[in-house]
Design a protein around this nucleic acid. Sequence first.
DNA 1: GCGTGACTTGAACGATCACTCAAGGAAAGG
DNA 2: CCTTTCCTTGAGTGATCGTTCAAGTCACGC
Lengths: 204, 204
Amino acid sequence: MKTELDTRTKIVLAAMDLFWSKGYNSTSIADILSRTQLNSGSLYHAFPGKQDVLIAVLESYRDGLYPMLLEPAWEGVGDPVDRIFALLDRYRWLIVETECTYGCPIGSLALELHEADPVVRNLLAVNFTGWTKAIETCLEAAADRLPAGLDKAALAQFVLTTMEGGVMQARTHLDVTYFDRGVGMLRDHFDMLMARAARKPETA
Amino acid sequence: MKTELDTRTKIVLAAMDLFWSKGYNSTSIADILSRTQLNSGSLYHAFPGKQDVLIAVLESYRDGLYPMLLEPAWEGVGDPVDRIFALLDRYRWLIVETECTYGCPIGSLALELHEADPVVRNLLAVNFTGWTKAIETCLEAAADRLPAGLDKAALAQFVLTTMEGGVMQARTHLDVTYFDRGVGMLRDHFDMLMARAARKPETA
DNA sequence: GCGTGACTTGAACGATCACTCAAGGAAAGG
DNA sequence: CCTTTCCTTGAGTGATCGTTCAAGTCACGC
């Protein structure tokens, strides 16, 4: 089944990869054109400008969160807490696979684009929110094992923080163990929370 | 005392500010020149090229870690655990002061420079290591309040992770509370560690 | 006064950037 | 066969990038 790809789709796929590996500013339109084997006219027929390609990429990440990231990561993993660490393991795998050169595409773009357009900044925020909401769902599913008054939204954000900070340090040091230690600390955090919940259950 | 600044120093100071606010790639030599009121010849007399300005900036951050960042943040704060959170509060202050537009200069550069020169990458790593080593010193000074077998290096890295992840999310959402929640989670983590240490003291 | 080295001047260079557009298919409906 | 519409072609635009360099200025030892 040789799928004939839409011009827009071809561009978005190529741009996703290029923005991920080189960043937005360092990726030129010429890079996208040579990757897709298109001419500039075709690209500018499909998109008004470079920033609109970025917007399409971010929308694609947003829409692909479950089908492309979470569902594969959670396949065969039923326990909600395990799912959180399965997702982190997915990122670990990406780090190893790319020899610590790639990171989280959203995080990289978020720190690269300093004076971002409101639409772009909002899409970055939406991507983060989608991710943390998914973690929050896991935390709610595991609510019986966690302390009663726990701020689940804050903890979900903390999971994202651990992932982003770990990826950043692993990439800078070219060493996955910097990611692993962060995940290990988060594991400890969860263990302590669950131990606390087990010690005095059902209290507000 | 009107100090006449060295050309190199003037350039480094201007570049620190520009790289911080706009990033490395988005800062042009022309930006640095107009900021310093110098001509291109003077800059290229002081530095072989743009990347060498970046290297000087990173060396400046490395050398300024204690005098410019830690000592001011720790002034009047004796308790080692309080010092950790005083430092995080310093970053919080920067976020608020810049209306969530600036972040950690090292973290931003680390994620912006995807295919960084080895010298640059190493200087980024050195800056991270200097920071975490300082936190580690605090943890060692508070060792009596912490669990015996605690991996202090890992926890120190986790503090950096919390800071970087919090800054990233605060900047993306244009809202400091994303930073605050991360610091709150870390506070909980410390509280749980100290409670565990108090429960069963002096055990390995 | 004069030579010498350190530093500055700023126009100019080639490369590359995002982007444009007149011209040219290709397919479909009439 | 013609028209219309959609899409592609690719040379070309002006702007901006990092960088160069011949010429000029300046302080200082002789």
